[in-house]
Amino acid sequence: MKKVSMLIPTYNEIENVGPLSEAIIEEFEKLPQYDYDIVFIDNDSRDGTRERLRELCASNKKIKAILNAKNFGQNNSPYYGITQTDGDCTILMCADFQDPIEMIPQLIQEWENGYKIVSAIKTSSKENKCVRFLRTCYYKMIKRFSDVEQIEHFTGFGLYDKSFVEIMRKLEDPTPFLRGVVAELGFKRKEIPYEQQLRRNGKSKNNFFSLYDIAMLSFTSYTKIGLRLATFLGVGIAFFSFMVAIVYLVYKLLYWDTFSAGMAPMVIGIFFLGAVQLIFLGLIGEYILSINKRIMNRPLVIEAERINFEDKK
């Protein structure tokens, strides 16, 4: 009998973990030909989620939990969690019901059809329209400038065959970007469209800084445009400045007795060039920060506790 592992990352989801596990169990009762387990990986919740997970694990041995020693970020924790599953395939979905539970049979069916990766693509969403627009712009920008194929509106929700999970285990990257790894190293995949639902309970943990971190991780890992734009713009501004200087000199020589430009052009030019330099110093800093994190080679996650895992660690 084939086994399907469900991987659910959590952070302050006390109101959702119980109903979610019940909904998943009900879905697999309709699929008696498959064995399954539900693996929660908790990123140091502070709202009682851990205590609730312990209760769920005590009541059902098919429910497992990995409790992180601290919050290791919304990229590392799910990636690490997938590598700790032991099913013939692993389905990753969020804990807030935004990823439809009823899609589980469809994901499994496409896997049985031979696809090693089945990606759920968020073709529409009930989220804020402005947020949706900004996400679309971001995806298109990354796709336009990346050397690696990028998957638009792919949040990570989908199915991963154990052969791809094994590739993930061997990938020694302390700052993995799952969506990029799927696009760069994944097998031929099947894309399934879906409408993202509203969060059922609780509040989103995303904020400007967490979204910025994800965006910059993708940008620095899969594009060179930041560094090249700095070079090209620097050359362009240098050439433009040289031409302006020549025109300024010629005009002054011809009309030296009437010419008086004052300090305004110089002050404006200094402020403009200073702003450009600061912008690109920041971009270069992001690349260096990304390199630094990889060189340090920190572990993805440190576990504080794992529950209902028999022999795998």
Rank of each mutant, 00 (worst) to 15 (best):
L20V: 08
F240K: 10
Q196D: 05
Y194C: 06
K122R: 15
E13W: 03
N113Y: 07
C89T: 06
S241E: 11
V165E: 04
K313L: 14
S210G: 01
K61G: 09
Y160S: 02
E29T: 09
A215D: 04
H153G: 00
M266Y: 15
F177E: 12
L53A: 01
K129R: 04
F280I: 04
E303R: 04
A304C: 06
L229D: 00
L67Q: 01
G156R: 00
D37Y: 05
L300E: 08
R179D: 15
V39F: 05
I25V: 15
F259V: 14
N16H: 07
F187A: 07
L178D: 11
G262S: 04
D47W: 02
A245E: 12
K61A: 15
D86M: 14
V4A: 00
F164D: 05
S77N: 10
R46C: 10
N16R: 12
M1Y: 01
K252L: 14
I246E: 08
L217A: 14
L253T: 09
G87M: 04
I291N: 12
D96F: 01
G234W: 01
Y11R: 13
E102W: 07
A304T: 05
R50T: 13
C137Q: 12
P176I: 04
L253V: 12
D42F: 03
A261F: 05
D257N: 14
S5A: 11
N128G: 02
E27I: 08
T90I: 08
G234S: 03
N43P: 02
F240V: 07
I91D: 03
S204R: 05
V301M: 00
F72D: 10
I108Q: 01
M266K: 09
L171H: 13
P9E: 06
F164K: 01
R46K: 09
L107D: 04
R306L: 09
Y287L: 08
I41C: 02
E110K: 15
R54I: 05
Y251N: 13
L217Q: 13
A245K: 11
T123E: 12
A275E: 13
W256P: 03
V181K: 12
K188I: 01
L31G: 00
N201D: 09
G202L: 13
M168S: 07
K116N: 10
R298V: 10
R179V: 15
L249M: 12
